[in-house]
Structure formats: structure tokens, C-alpha cells
């Protein structure tokens, strides 16, 4: 949120048709600013102008309307501007970037009050962890239940942090049998992969259970850094209320 006082105003001049990675430059810049939480930005199209190449562009003659001048403007704190500038420099390509000192007299206000998350500390575990991948077949069973479902249930019961099941379209494994997803087949035996992230101790403690359940397949570990693991308690509480 921008406060009143001194700030920087950045203006980027580009052509409407200038491209950045398959997207119009002004649109790419706008979405870059949006996802970097800039408090606001706007793109304006000029009716006529010329650039460093001295090509006159105007919308009065149909043929020349190809590359009208565009201006993207935003106002931010000097620190934020310094942080964003290197990328903007790259994106602007042949365009021009200008920075002005400005003063915010009245800051803009958000229309809806942001939900307060105070008093609801998110569960966060950061640091080294292990990623376990389990490769099995879709038709593998454990006590008449699909193995991947049984694995998820047993992991939940063991309070493993989380698991995601992926379904492959083609593959083969230890038994050399090709698992294939053919449109005209009613009996699928597609390859499945479960990806599980938790601390090494937790996963190692779970291995005996896993060993008993996975009769054929592959289990591998790799190192990962947990960057974020959060859970919105407030949202969970709200859902609980709705359900009851």
C-alpha cells in the first residue's frame, strides 16, 4: 500500500506492436507489474507519434496504424522501482523508460478491506525435506482397494504432510509391461505416480507400511527445500461452519 509523500513515477514508452516473448510488450509489462504487486499501473495508447527510428505512426491513415505509441505508467516507492527496473529494462527492448520524482498527495484506497489474518498463524515448515516418489500401476490393488487410494489413506493416517497422485499416459517399469492409455480400451492400466513431501524421519518411519503395501513398483527419494507450506485456518474454520 502506497503512503502519501515522495515517490517515483515510471513511464515506459513502447510501440503497440512490440513483442516480448510472444506477447505485446505493454501487456507483458502490465502483467509483470501486476504480479509484482505494484499498487497500480495503466497503459495508454497515443493517437500519433514517432519513435527513435523516425517512423511516423498515426491512426488517421489506416496503413500506418500498425504500431501506435503506447505508454505504461506506474507510481511506486523508490525501493520498489529499483527492484523492478532491471527486468523492465530488459522488457522494454527498444523503448524508452523515464523516472520522475513525484509526491503522493492522496493515496488510492482498496475497495474491499483485506481480510485480517492476525491471530491465525499459518503452519509453516521451512528447510530441508525429502520428496518421495512412488511409481505403481493404476490396477495395483491392496486388500481389494486401488493401491493409490490405500496409500493416500495410510499416509493421511500417518500424518504425512501431503501427497499428490499423478496419472501417466504411457510407461513401463520393473515388470517390463507397457502401461498404456489407449482411447479404445475399457481396461486401463495406466502408470501412476504419488509424490510425497515431508521430513526424512517422517518418511523413513512410514517405509515399513509402504513396504508391505507396494508389492511391485519403484520408490525413490530426493532432496528438496521447502519454500512454503501453509494452511489457511480461517478458511478451514469457515468451511467447517458451512458444513455443520
Amino acid at each position: 500500500m502506497l503512503e502519501t509523500g515522495p515517490a517515483k513515477k515510471v513511464t515506459i514508452y513502447v510501440g503497440q506492436d512490440h513483442q516480448y516473448h510472444g506477447d505485446a510488450v505493454y501487456a507483458a509489462i502490465l502483467s509483470f507489474l501486476f504480479y509484482h504487486k505494484v499498487s497500480g499501473a495503466s497503459a495508454t495508447r497515443g493517437v500519433a507519434g514517432f519513435d527513435a527510428d523516425h517512423h511516423m505512426q498515426t491512426d488517421r491513415i489506416l496503413v500506418l496504424t500498425a504500431n501506435l505509441p503506447m505508454k505504461v505508467e506506474f507510481i511506486e516507492t523508490p525501493e520498489k522501482v529499483a527492484e523492478l527496473l532491471p527486468k523492465l529494462y530488459e522488457m522494454a527492448g527498444t523503448g524508452l523508460i523515464e523516472i520522475q520524482d513525484t509526491t503522493i498527495v492522496k493515496s488510492s484506497e482498496t475497495t474491499k478491506q483485506a481480510a485480517s489474518h492476525e491471530g491465525m498463524p499459518p503452519l509453516k515448515r521451512q528447510g530441508k525435506a525429502k520428496l518421495m516418489r512412488i511409481f505403481i500401476g493404476e490396477n495395483d490393488k491392496w486388500h481389494d482397494k486401488p493401491l493409490h487410494k490405500a496409500l493416500i489413506e495410510s499416509m493421511r493416517a500417518s500424518e504425512i504432510a501431503g501427497v499428490t497422485v499423478y496419472q501417466g499416459i504411457l510407461g513401463y517399469g520393473a515388470n517390463r509391461r507397457i502401461h498404456k492409455d489407449t482411447a479404445l480400451h475399457l481396461s486401463h492400466d495406466r502408470p501412476m505416480m504419488l509424490s510425497v513431501v515431508d521430513t526424512e524421519e517422517r518418511l523413513r518411519a512410514f517405509l515399513p507400511v509402504l513396504d508391505d503395501m507396494v508389492q511391485q513398483g519403484l520408490v525413490v527419494f530426493s532432496d528438496v527445500d521447502v519454500i512454503k507450506y501453509t494452511h489457511n485456518y480461517q478458511e478451514a474454520e469457515r468451511r467447517k461452519v458451512v458444513r455443520s
Binding site: 515388470n175 513396504d211 519403484l218 530426493s222
Partner: peptide, 11 residues
């Protein structure tokens, strides 16, 4: 990437 194989079985 590096991985550590925990289990590779086939019946």
C-alpha cells in the same frame, strides 16, 4: 537430478 532408490520390485 539425484535420487535415492528405496525400493524397486516386481513380482
Amino acid at each position: 537430478s539425484e535420487v535415492e532408490v528405496i525400493k524397486y520390485v516386481h513380482q
